[in-house]
Design a protein around this nucleic acid. Structure first.
Ligand SMILES: [Mn+2]
Ligand SMILES: [Mn+2]
Ligand SMILES: [Zn+2]
Ligand SMILES: [Zn+2]
Lengths: 165, 165
DNA sequence: ATTGAAAATGAAATTCATTTTCAATTAGAA
DNA sequence: TTCTAATTGAAAATGAATTTCATTTTCAAT
């Protein structure tokens, strides 16, 4: 899925990779699961991109590193990564669940073009404050929120046709 | 789906109902569709509740008024109602698409309990301003946004178990 | 190094909300 | 009333998400 980045970053350093792996292994140990080559490959593949990937997209990328990795393993590993905070689901409402890695990343939100699917990341600390404030007001223990803006990007406004979302 | 209302309202008056129907009929005529008894029943059923209904939930309610109404017709009618602004989809991320009616209602957002599914409505004009502001900044023609807060409600914090979402 | 129990894997099957198909029925303009 | 295009709803299809299960692998205890 197309993306335009606001805070472009280099790919993760070897040190970053090791640190993220450690978080993952700690989590696996904590819940009584085992360390495997596949889980390693999937985590590495996931960290290498800042894209918002569907399970199938990550599966295809991981398969380039290990041709016999299975879709099911990618699916299950994404759940594990979400459990330990290395991944989070991001719903663009395009019919598939997407994930992005959360290792050393600032919290951000997305604006999505309903025509071409382009997503733009933006920062808006006010939204986090609203979560806290409204949770308090209605006596919720607020743990997370979703905020997305939908519209038509500059390029698509110039084109004639329309599709998607 | 359970809901706690902030701005409780009486059921729609006969006059409200007529006004909403007129909006619907105008839309049908505009796109070359016909006025049917089923569509009428579905609209009335939909307006009578302020709940956030899945297609299946609305189908079950509508069937009480007309036992031989079909699921497919409810499904299609919801799309039509969304087209003319009388309904909007609200994604609680519980695995089904939900709709709420937008006739004579203030724009609002939702806080959802991830344990029991309770949803609380709240008003936050700041969020609408953010949409406008960020759209402008990144040259999007922003048309809508989604904002939800997830957490655990007061009642569920007291209970021991956990489930859902 | 060997063993064995528990976990992991991945292909295949299943689930389930959503969407499409299609033959019979109905609306409504002329 | 007639005719055409739209509607209906049961059934089938779709497709992402999830589960099943036979086989393989991990890893802690010998
Ligand atoms: Mn992002
Ligand atoms: Mn609402
Ligand atoms: Zn675009
Ligand atoms: Zn609750």
């Amino acid at each position: 899925m197309l993306q335009r980045r606001i805070d472009d970053h280099a790919p993760p350093s070897r040190e970053d990779m090791r640190e993220a792996q450690e978080i993952f292994y700690k989590h696996l140990k904590r819940v009584g699961l085992k360390h495997t080559e596949q889980r390693d490959t999937i985590l590495r593949t996931f960290l290498e991109t800042r894209d918002h990937l569907s399970t199938d997209e990550l599966f295809r990328l991981a398969r380039k590193k290990d041709a016999k990795i299975g879709f099911t393993t990618v699916y299950r590993t994404l759940k594990l990564l979400a459990e330990c905070g290395l991944a989070s689901e991001v719903a663009f409402h395009d019919g598939v669940a997407r994930y992005e890695h959360q290792f050393n990343r600032r919290s951000h939100h997305h604006m999505v073009c309903t025509d071409c699917g382009l997503s733009v990341e933006f920062f808006s600390p006010e939204v986090g404050k609203l979560e806290e404030e409204i949770g308090r007001k209605y006596h919720f223990d607020a743990t997370r929120h979703t905020f997305q803006i939908y519209g038509v990007c500059e390029d698509c406004r110039k084109k004639p046709s329309r599709k998607l979302i």
